[in-house]
Write a protein that binds this DNA or RNA. Structure first.
Lengths: 151, 151
DNA sequence: ACCTCTCTGACCATCTTTGACTATTGTTTG
DNA sequence: CAAACAATAGTCAAAGATGGTCAGAGAGGT
């Protein structure tokens, strides 16, 4: 955890732990952590994705900003449908993992369940061409979500 | 015990004697013991395998690491191996269900876990020729059993 | 000699960091 | 008001920083 990305991620998440939304100035954060501004984009693109449960907006120009919001879903049924709709026809291993973590955070899956499922969705478990893997993984994930709705 | 592999193994295990997890930088350890970095991979691949009771994760790139965890071994290990050996290369939906029920009866799976897994192993979840389905199902089931051994 | 385990290094894969260039929005000037 | 200018943020590809793989050389035992 000595790389800047992780440090900035931790900083932002620590604030988001209390606040629901955080609004930053890219340049300011870059200066505070002594890195180039585009580093902030990297942090956001890799750590604050929709899969991980964040919604990001920004504006350029004078008074510009980057706003990060935790996505709050009230009803678990809705979350399952929503995740289902996000998935589409293709799903990478990383995205699948992010969704599982998300479901875990929302207490819709136990840690153990998430691990078991993740092991079935990893590429080693899907012996086929990468394209087909992604299709298959999406299919399995959707099946899972549907099943969860009935439990 | 004069070869580097054994020395590094001993060093890591000594730490793992107190800590449950250890996180190292490959390059750093290589330097400390004056060997090439890939030597560390050799040590890990031969001395810290799942069979020997360790779980290893790693990350590349800046801030990369190798993390080794001791796994708590269940006494149900044998049953999992046994079921694993029964499965073979092909597994029908019915057989899979039977195995899941068996694991449930042995309290190695909760009812909910069994249902979730069953939904992923049913034929509707495996859109492919029946022959391939059976192969795929066997593969997934074996993966599952392996994963359960580390939980 | 032969076999197995160890060790090494060249090459590969993945994640992070940086910076030049681009795009957008707000402000000032002619 | 339109054009220039200023202030932001975004993109992308290259460089940097790690760890992974694999085949072949080396070492030790039978």
């Amino acid at each position: 955890m000595q790389n800047i990305t992780d440090i900035i991620e931790a900083y932002l998440k620590q604030i988001l732990h209390d606040e629901k939304t955080i609004e930053i100035k890219r340049q300011e954060i870059a200066q505070r952590f002594d890195c180039v501004p585009s580093q902030i984009n990297y942090v956001i693109n890799t750590r604050f994705t929709v899969e991980k449960g964040y919604f990001v907006e920004s504006k350029r120009g004078g008074g510009g900003y980057i706003r990060i919001q935790k996505i709050v879903v009230l009803d678990s049924h809705d979350l399952l449908d929503e995740v289902s709709s996000w998935i589409g026809d293709h799903l990478t291993e990383q995205a699948a993992e992010d969704y599982l973590i998300r479901l875990m955070n929302e207490q819709l899956l136990t840690r153990r369940e998430a691990i078991l499922i993740q092991s079935l969705l990893q590429k080693e478990s899907l012996p086929m061409a990468v394209e087909d893997q992604h299709r298959m993984r999406a299919h399995l994930m959707r099946t899972l979500l549907q099943t969860m709705k009935r439990l």
